[in-house]
Amino acid sequence: MPPNASLEFNIPVELAGRRVDQVLAQLMPDYSRTRIKDWIEAGRVTLDGRVPRPRDSVSGGEAVHVRPLVPVMHEDRAQDIALDIRYEDDSLVVLNKPAGLVVHPAAGNREGTLLNALLHHCPALATQPRAGIVHRLDKDTSGLMVVAKTPAAHQVLVTALAAHDVSREYLALVQGELIAGGTVDEPIARHVRDRKRMGVVPGGKPAVSHYRLVERFIGHTLLRVSLETGRTHQIRVHMSHIRHPIVGDPAYGGRLRLPPGAGEALTETMRGFRRQALHATRLALTHPATGEGMAWEAEPPEDMLTLIDALRVHARLRDD
């Protein structure tokens, strides 16, 4: 529903005898009782054509007409940018973000972001905090994200994220050959010398990443990483901290390391991969309205699949 669009419905007869503001708060759970009371007092609510008081009782069956007045939280421009939507209903949108797409507008980068795309796709998100975005991915990290379409869904999802009740798993191609999975439990904060980067810093915010092996190549390993926390650059910082930085990471990856015996094709592929090889591959959560457990999976984009396949071919050739 676009911001401030009118609402029309009838009051169920079983709610007869209750206060108008209480009834509307129950029937319109996306809005607070305080906001609904303000609309009633401002004459923006009618019952069978008359303007009630908040404390008036309903008889049941009345025709309700509501003209909401919801402040627009975003002045950012809606833009027709293609979205890879994997699921959508009245409460949420699950999408597969491409690498290279910035999530939020910022100074010097006000347009062409995921937020601009969401405002075009669903204009009502202009009334939601951060246009309903409840978590983010770095510009050059691809993968699954969830967006809340209503205030109620936003509150439930933010609370679930804080309680670690939303499962997020990533595929990360890292430098070096790991022999087993593990856990990195190290605090993260702003880097002490480079304020544009994050780092493992004593006294920083708690951060826990679990990783397990998916496939091992020559000089590289494909990992599946799950998060208990959601700190900025968490996986990138943690993998670098254990000396297995993510391939292509411009901030934490160091210089390019070609595997021994790399041929021309693999060398060209690795040199041409100019972003971190990190993809949010699985998202699982409890639906904020129905309570149903839901999960989605998304394969990495073509550039990352090509890189993985090139390493796989190189490993096979060396084995032969």
Rank of each mutant, 00 (worst) to 15 (best):
Met1Cys: 04
Pro3Ser: 03
Pro3Ala: 09
Glu8Met: 08
Phe9Gly: 06
Phe9Ile: 01
Pro12Met: 03
Arg18Leu: 11
Val20Asp: 01
Val20Met: 03
Asp21Gln: 04
Asp21Lys: 03
Val23Lys: 01
Gln26Pro: 06
Gln26Met: 13
Leu27Trp: 15
Asp30Trp: 07
Tyr31Arg: 13
Arg35Val: 14
Ile36Met: 14
Asp38His: 15
Trp39Asp: 03
Ile40Val: 15
Ile40Glu: 00
Gly43Gln: 04
Arg44Lys: 15
Arg44Val: 12
Arg53Cys: 05
Arg55Ala: 15
Asp56Tyr: 00
Asp56Glu: 14
Ser57Thr: 10
Val58Arg: 00
Ser59Arg: 14
Ser59Asn: 14
Pro68Ile: 03
Val72Met: 14
Met73Asn: 06
Asp80Cys: 06
Asp84Met: 05
Asp89Cys: 08
Val94Cys: 06
Asn96His: 01
Lys97Val: 13
Lys97Ala: 15
Pro98Val: 06
Gly100Leu: 10
Leu101Cys: 05
Val102Ser: 06
Pro105Leu: 00
Ala106Arg: 10
Ala106Lys: 12
Ala107Phe: 11
Gly112Gln: 01
Thr113Trp: 01
Thr113Ala: 01
Ala117Tyr: 02
Leu118His: 04
Cys122Met: 06
Ala124Asn: 11
Thr127Cys: 14
Arg130Gln: 15
Gly132Gln: 09
Lys139Gly: 06
Asp140Asn: 10
Thr141Ala: 11
Val146His: 01
Val147Leu: 14
Val147Met: 08
Val147Ser: 04
Ala148Thr: 05
Pro151Asp: 12
Ala152Ile: 13
Val156Ala: 14
Val156Ser: 07
Leu157Tyr: 04
Val158His: 04
Thr159Met: 07
Leu161Tyr: 00
Ser167Trp: 01
Ser167Gln: 06
Tyr170Ala: 02
Leu173Gly: 00
Gln175Cys: 14
Glu177Ser: 08
Thr183Ala: 10
Asp185Trp: 07
Glu186Pro: 02
Pro187Ala: 07
His191Asp: 12
Arg193Phe: 14
Asp194Tyr: 06
Met198His: 14
Gly199Asp: 12
Pro202Tyr: 09
Lys205Ala: 09
Ala207Phe: 12
Ala207Asn: 13
Val208Cys: 09
Phe217Met: 11
His220Val: 06
Thr221Ile: 07
Arg224Phe: 08
Arg224Glu: 12
Ser226Cys: 07
Leu227Asn: 04
Leu227Glu: 10
Glu228Pro: 04
Glu228Cys: 12
Gly230Leu: 07
Arg231Asn: 09
Arg231Pro: 11
Arg231Tyr: 13
His233Asp: 09
His233Ile: 15
Ile235Arg: 01
Val237Arg: 02
Val237Asn: 10
His238Tyr: 07
Met239Leu: 11
His241Pro: 07
His244Asn: 12
Ile246Thr: 09
Gly248Pro: 15
Pro250Asp: 13
Ala251Lys: 13
Arg255Asn: 11
Arg257Ile: 14
Arg257Tyr: 05
Pro259Leu: 03
Pro260Asn: 08
Leu266Gly: 09
Glu268Pro: 02
Met270Tyr: 01
Gly272Trp: 13
Phe273Leu: 04
Ala277Asn: 01
Leu278Asn: 04
Ala280Lys: 00
Arg282Val: 10
Leu283Asp: 00
Ala284Tyr: 11
Thr286Tyr: 00
Gly291Phe: 05
Gly293Pro: 09
Trp296Asp: 08
Ala298Ile: 08
Asp309Tyr: 07
Ala310Lys: 02
Ala310Thr: 15
Val313Gln: 11
Ala315Thr: 15
Arg316Gln: 13
Leu317His: 05
Asp319Ile: 07
